[in-house]
């Protein structure tokens, strides 16, 4: 288990920022974020916006939304170790 540090730059704060960024870009999305190590996170996103897109296209939507958290040498997010993109079973009622 990685140690979770609360406070500025801590894993919990970054998790919240990731969650917020994905929800802003993909309204109604279901987002699960977990820490996988210092600067490393795992994401599971369920959104109707993924329908009809390739796997790359789906991931591009998420990566585009969180790019500001991954940019530059001191970015709070170093890597997304695992990114799952799921389409809700009934796309009209996510």
């Amino acid at each position: 288990m990685p140690i979770q540090i609360a406070g500025p730059g801590g894993a919990l704060e970054v998790q919240a920022a990731l969650d917020e960024a994905v929800r802003q870009a993909l309204p109604k999305a279901e987002v699960e974020v977990s820490a996988a190590g210092p600067g490393h996170f795992e994401l599971r996103v369920t959104s109707a916006a993924f329908a009809g897109k390739t796997r790359v296209g789906q991931q591009q939507l998420v990566y585009g939304a969180i790019a500001h958290l991954m940019a530059g040498p001191n970015a709070p997010v170093h890597a997304i170790d695992r990114l799952e993109c799921l389409i809700p079973e009934s796309p009209n009622d996510p």
Binding site: Q60, G64, I66, M70, G72
Partner: peptide, 12 residues
């Protein structure tokens, strides 16, 4: 190096 990440919406 930085530009391609934005261009592609891909972080790596």
């Amino acid at each position: 190096r930085e530009g391609i990440k934005v261009y592609s919406s891909w972080p790596t």
